[in-house]
């Protein structure tokens, strides 16, 4: 049976699109038929992160409004055969999405794919609520930082009240993906620890993605980080997170980024 997964956070810039691409690619590499759907109508970026920006012809809005067939809008990934992308529209705004239209597209995707990964826009408005609307499970992307944790808490509340599953009295599986984590700074007491965030948000941990330059390098060239440098810290963490989504039980390990003494002393400071 197919699974609809929403990648959401409330706050912008925490790594929803990076995580959607990385998890989608990892699930596809595990042999699943996967589509990643960009719900950020007007500010699409998943196409860019996946390196498919020059191949977009039709988009989600065209399909929702019946101007294009689903098969015409889907873009097959060139690196992983079982991975597809449904891009968002760049010229329209989020009002172009209707609840009925989105439901119809999701139902159609369920027939073709094992996993439907919905990349939510930031915020709690129409785009975000429609992205989570038909989800069976959610990945809540959170940075170890006060505003991100607060927004994630708000999103968890919406997942438990505004989704189709919640309204039908069913539960929606929620997983925490802690991104941009710096174990060294957390150990120094400068950054919220994994345990702090877990205790506050009270949802199970899917993975810890270390703060790493590999993420930017991968996005520079338009390749999901799991495919770009599979041995890097973030790629390994995303691959393990994907295996957990598939039901495997793997202990979450603490990513320790190896840094030279010099960069530890004189490295950039993050305000």
């Amino acid at each position: 049976m197919s699974k609809v997964l929403v990648v959401t956070s409330g706050k912008g810039g925490v790594g929803k699109t990076t995580s959607s691409a990385a998890l989608g690619a990892a699930l596809a590499q595990a042999g699943k038929n996967v589509v990643v759907v960009d719900f950020d109508v007007g500010l699409r970026n998943l196409d860019l992160i996946m390196g498919a920006e020059r191949r977009v012809v039709f988009d989600l809005v065209n399909v929702v409004q019946g101007d294009a067939k689903l098969a015409q809008a889907l873009i097959r990934d060139k690196r992983v055969e079982t991975l597809s992308l449904l891009p968002a529209s760049q010229t329209r705004d989020k009002d172009a999405l209707t609840p009925e239209g989105v439901e119809r597209v999701i139902d159609e995707l369920r027939e073709k794919f094992d996993w439907i990964v919905c990349d939510s826009p930031a915020g709690i408005e129409r785009g975000a609520t429609l992205a989570m609307r038909h989800a069976d499970m959610a990945v809540v992307v959170t940075n170890p930082e006060v505003s991100s944790v607060r927004d994630s808490d708000r999103i968890i509340g919406l997942l438990d009240s505004k989704t189709a599953r919640a309204e039908a009295g069913e539960t929606i599986e929620k997983h925490l993906l802690l991104t941009r984590y710096d174990a060294t700074r957390a150990a120094r007491g400068e950054m919220l620890k994994v345990e702090d965030v877990l205790e506050i948000l009270a949802i199970p941990l899917l993975g810890i993605i270390p703060d790493s330059e590999d993420v930017l390098k991968a996005s520079n060239v338009g390749c999901p980080v799991t495919l770009h440098n599979p041995l890097s810290g973030p790629a390994r963490a995303y691959a393990e997170a994907a295996r957990r989504l598939l039901g495997e039980t793997i202990a979450v390990t603490m990513p320790v980024e190896k840094k030279s003494l010099m960069s530890r002393w004189f490295g950039r400071s993050v305000a």
Binding site: E145, V146, R188, G189, E190, K193, D196
Partner: peptide, 17 residues
Amino acid sequence: TRTRTAPVARERLQLLL
């Protein structure tokens, strides 16, 4: 002269939420 600011963040969040 490290200051441990994370415990402050944690406490503020717990109260607020």
